[in-house]
Computed example of a mutant assay.
Amino acid sequence: MASTAPQIAAQMPTEWRDFFALTKPRVMTLVIFTAICGVLAAPGTIHPIIGFTAILAIAMGAGGSAVLNMWWEADIDAGMKRTRSRPLPGGRMRREDARDFGIFLSGVSVVLMGLAVGWLAAALLLGAIIYYAVIYTMWLKPRTPQNIVIGGGAGAFPPLIGWVAVTGEITAMPILLFAIIFFWTPPHFWALALFVQSDYAKVGIPMLPVVAGEKATRRQIMAYTVLLAPIAIAPWWIGGTGWIYGSCAVVLSALFLILAVPVFTRMREETDTMQPEKALFKFSIVYLFVLFAALVADRVAAYQGWPA
């Protein structure tokens, strides 16, 4: 859906910090981290320079798609309290400059990945960019409350691409890493959406709490948390990891479930501070970081010959 609000004109000088902010650096941290974990956990070896180039290309691709997301949604961001200070709604940059910057980053990232690493990894990177910038941002997000479910695939690509950069093939393990992030995204994002739903309602974005209500959202959070647990443990079950990852996956998934229960069983009160929802959202970030760190630790342990 094309933007219908008036164009936001740049009224203040643009700085390099504004271009950097367009890449969503906080989100980029998680993207880069999971991509690095995919590279380090994959069987086989990769030259450090090639490995660094793969991570750089993934970071550029993720940054480029984030810039295109902000370019397309500048009018929406202007109407939301938590996003209205971004460079475009804040009037610090022309929308055309943001669009061109996003296209440049995205294009260079794919070409760099293809030439330096491999064309299968480059094709996956291109797919991730199109998935986020076009399928999710332009098509799904303004049209369906299931936008986060289907769009979650965009954020699930980095470890898959990192793994393929090393091995040159798609196997069960990288698919499971993709699936972990895919099923993690709905409870992570809907927990956030529960306490910022008024922002989405104000700008007409059909997030699940807005169109289906809190009760349905809480049920969905619980359902996806339950589905996530066996998927997170699956790499251990199939023998792709050892006890370090396996034990972390079990403990972390149990904690995730424990924190999801109060979110599922309660309803918001008038003066509610939404502490269970905020706690679940914050833990979900820790969950993914620790789970993927355990994946790398497991690989290091295997390399050192420690007991599996």
Rank of each mutant, 00 (worst) to 15 (best):
M1S: 15
M1A: 14
A2H: 13
S3C: 13
S3Q: 15
A5K: 15
P6D: 09
I8E: 04
I8C: 12
A9C: 14
P13S: 06
P13E: 11
T14A: 04
F19P: 04
F20S: 10
F20V: 14
L22R: 03
T23D: 00
R26A: 12
M28L: 07
L30K: 05
I36K: 09
G38Q: 01
G38E: 01
G44M: 09
P48Q: 09
P48L: 06
T53G: 09
A54K: 05
A54V: 04
I55H: 00
I55Y: 01
L56E: 07
A57L: 01
A62D: 00
G63F: 02
G64H: 00
V67D: 00
V67P: 01
A74I: 06
I76Y: 12
D77K: 02
A78C: 13
R84Q: 15
P87N: 03
M93W: 04
E96L: 12
D97Y: 03
D100E: 10
D100L: 15
D100S: 11
F101D: 02
F101S: 00
L105D: 05
S106C: 01
G107E: 02
V108F: 09
G114L: 05
L115A: 15
V117L: 08
A121V: 11
A121I: 05
L125R: 07
A128N: 05
I129R: 04
Y131K: 08
Y132S: 07
I135G: 14
T137M: 02
L140D: 01
R143K: 10
R143H: 12
P145G: 03
P145M: 08
Q146G: 14
N147R: 05
I148M: 09
A154S: 02
G155S: 06
I161A: 02
W163G: 03
W163F: 02
I175T: 13
I175S: 15
F182A: 14
P186S: 05
P187M: 08
H188R: 10
H188L: 11
F189G: 06
W190M: 09
A191Q: 08
A191Y: 09
L194W: 02
Q197K: 10
Y200F: 07
Y200E: 01
A201D: 13
I205E: 03
L208T: 03
P209W: 00
K215W: 13
K215E: 13
T217L: 04
R218E: 07
R218H: 00
I221C: 08
M222Y: 15
A223Y: 11
L227C: 04
P230F: 07
A232T: 08
P235W: 06
W236K: 11
W237I: 14
I244P: 13
Y245T: 06
Y245I: 06
S247T: 15
C248I: 14
V250E: 05
V250Y: 06
V251G: 05
S253Q: 10
L255H: 09
I258L: 10
I258P: 08
F264E: 12
F264L: 10
T271C: 11
M274K: 13
P276D: 06
E277M: 10
K278W: 03
F281H: 08
K282N: 15
F283K: 11
S284N: 08
S284H: 08
I285D: 14
I285H: 13
I285F: 12
L288R: 06
F292Q: 10
F292Y: 10
V300I: 12
V300T: 07
Q304M: 11
W306H: 14
A308C: 13
